[in-house]
């Protein structure tokens, strides 16, 4: 009996959270399409979220590309399929690894900082202060982060794609003695626009998820210093799980078309 009650409790709690996050997203989107828009906040967040994430995303991409070449070589050389490696690498990176890994890295870096910042503002009554100064915290805090994150993530993924492919190229030509020109021509030969575009669409969705998770967790923090830590953890867990979940959903959609 106790077990059934617990399962029921967890299930109800889960759907309650889904409802709350959906409602939060709905309010955020509504605020997004109404004035005033705080452009300077958007620009600041663009720099903070986008520009300063380039090193971490770049590092992730270069090593991922490098390791991908080594691993595929190990497998593909068993049936003399080495010539397909450039194609495998470019498709894996643009369609899947670029967006997912960049998304997860940015979720760790940016999602956590958004959550910590907004939670601290809530705990120290700065959210209330905004309202007493006739500024809607949703428009001033949530919307700029949402816009910046949704727009910068595709750009970051594009950078990650290029760096990742370059990482693969360096290892393939430097260590595995691939012909440089042949590797490059094979990289682009079978690449389709859809491969890149589907990755960038995913990236935009992940950007939205990261910002919403961070803002939602921060906004719903309780009082006290501990709650700031909890909000940060929640943001990272929530955005990572949602990224992986929506990664499957979007892949499924692009796969069918």
């Amino acid at each position: 009996m106790e077990f059934i009650r617990k399962v029921g409790g967890v299930t109800l709690g889960f759907f309650q959270d889904v409802g709350k996050v959906s409602n939060f997203s709905f309010i955020a989107i509504k605020a997004m399409i109404s004035s005033p828009i705080y452009f300077s906040e958007i620009v600041q967040n663009f720099i903070r979220i986008g520009f300063f994430s380039i090193p971490v995303v770049g590092m992730t991409a270069i090593f991922t590309g490098a390791v991908l070449v080594l691993q595929t070589y190990t497998g593909f050389s068993r049936f003399a399929g080495e010539s397909t490696i450039p194609t495998v690498v470019v498709i894996s990176i643009t369609r899947e690894l670029g967006p997912v890994l960049a998304g997860l890295m940015v979720a760790g870096r940016v999602g956590s900082s958004i959550a910590a910042e907004i939670a601290t503002m809530k705990v120290s009554e700065q959210l209330d202060a905004l309202r007493t100064l006739a500024v809607n915290p949703f428009r001033y805090l949530v919307v700029p982060r949402l816009i910046a994150c949704t727009l910068t993530l595709p750009l970051l993924v594009l950078i990650a794609d290029i760096i990742g492919i370059f990482g693969g190229y360096v290892v393939a030509t430097g260590k595995l003695n691939f012909n440089k020109a042949l590797y490059l021509s094979n990289t682009v030969a079978y690449l389709q626009a859809e491969d890149v575009i589907s990755g960038l669409v995913k990236a935009a969705i992940f950007g939205f998820i990261i910002a919403i998770s961070g803002c939602y967790s921060g906004y719903n923090a309780d009082q006290g210093a501990e709650s700031v830590g909890t909000a940060t953890i929640n943001a990272v867990v929530m955005s990572s799980v949602l990224i992986l979940f929506f990664n499957y959903i979007t892949t499924q959609i692009f796969f069918a078309t």
Binding site: M121, E125, D128, A129, R131, T132, L133, A134, V135, Y140
Partner: peptide, 30 residues
């Protein structure tokens, strides 16, 4: 809110803004 002023217990100044931006916040944004 333009007719009210509110002093919060901890001040609730915006950390990311300078003193003058904090003070003029209402005027700048409204």
């Amino acid at each position: 809110m333009s007719r009210f002023g509110f002093l919060f217990q901890g001040g609730a100044l915006f950390d990311s803004l300078t003193v003058w931006e904090n003070i003029a916040f209402y005027l700048i944004h409204n």
